[in-house]
Design a protein around this nucleic acid. Structure first.
Lengths: 134, 134
DNA sequence: CAAAACTATACCGGTTGAGTATATTTTAGA
DNA sequence: TCTAAAATATACTCAACCGGTATAGTTTTG
């Protein structure tokens, strides 16, 4: 029941870029040093963020990364889903076939967890990087 | 970011017992059959629930399990913590030493996740098995 | 004392997590 | 045009965890 380390590093990388001018390319080495993220691991994480449209990248000499959207338009949920995929509190909420009783919709546990998951996802989508910059 | 299968089975076992008379011992075989839980796996999970004071057990002939508390006094959180231990959305929320920047309290990401974790835990503690029996 | 039940512990195969390594591609600029 | 700086793709490693099974032991009733 937790966020993985790659996602945590992703949060930090995005927050770091949020403090920079979005016209300026910041290379992975710089992010790595300032945020204490292993460089090779960071280089594996960043493409997830670019594919999700959170960050843009530029290769070659003087290349690097910059935010692709405004900080107020990037939520914690965006980063989590970019790196880990969708959130499911229980595997039966991902695919009802996982319920060994084959009764997901009628199951009160399923319904309760579904409610709580919805609240969690909503809350994560409300928290933006703009809020965390202050 | 999810609840594991043992916990899911734990929810079902507790909910099943909640529908029974608490004076009556229900054996693992019966729970296993009604809730479609692999018997040997269930037998590994149940001691977590007894140690947490959620369920009581009785060995020997005509032994089994029964709830140790009223359904309205058992929350989803109780069962999760009994089986998985405490909830931490991020490993830095478990132990600040995990923060590679060594700045957990000052970190806006840490603070935000901490807020969200508190909300999640509160919500899980509000949902009781009595509510799920209706 | 025998059988029915729970308990403790160890094992196992598969998957995920965290991170490293290597080779490739793109680009700016000398 | 060549070189160096950067990102990308892919594969690898090693440990931990997950889901489940197996074995042996203890307690209790009748």
């Amino acid at each position: 029941m937790n966020i993985n380390q790659a996602t945590d590093y992703g949060f930090r990388a995005v927050l770091y870029l949020a403090h920079k001018d979005s016209q300026e390319w910041v290379d992975a080495q710089t992010i790595s040093e300032h945020e204490a993220i292993p460089i090779r691991f960071l280089l594996k994480i960043m493409p997830c963020l670019t594919k999700a449209g959170i960050v843009k990248s530029h290769r070659g000499v003087r290349g690097g990364y910059a935010l692709a959207r405004q900080p107020q338009d990037i939520s914690l949920l965006d980063v989590i889903e970019a790196i880990e995929g969708p959130i499911y509190l229980n595997r039966c909420l991902e695919d009802e076939a996982h319920c060994s009783k084959q009764s997901a919709p009628a199951c009160p546990i399923h319904r309760t967890l579904s409610d709580i998951q919805d609240q969690l996802v909503l809350e994560l989508s409300r928290r933006t990087f703009a809020q965390m910059m202050q």
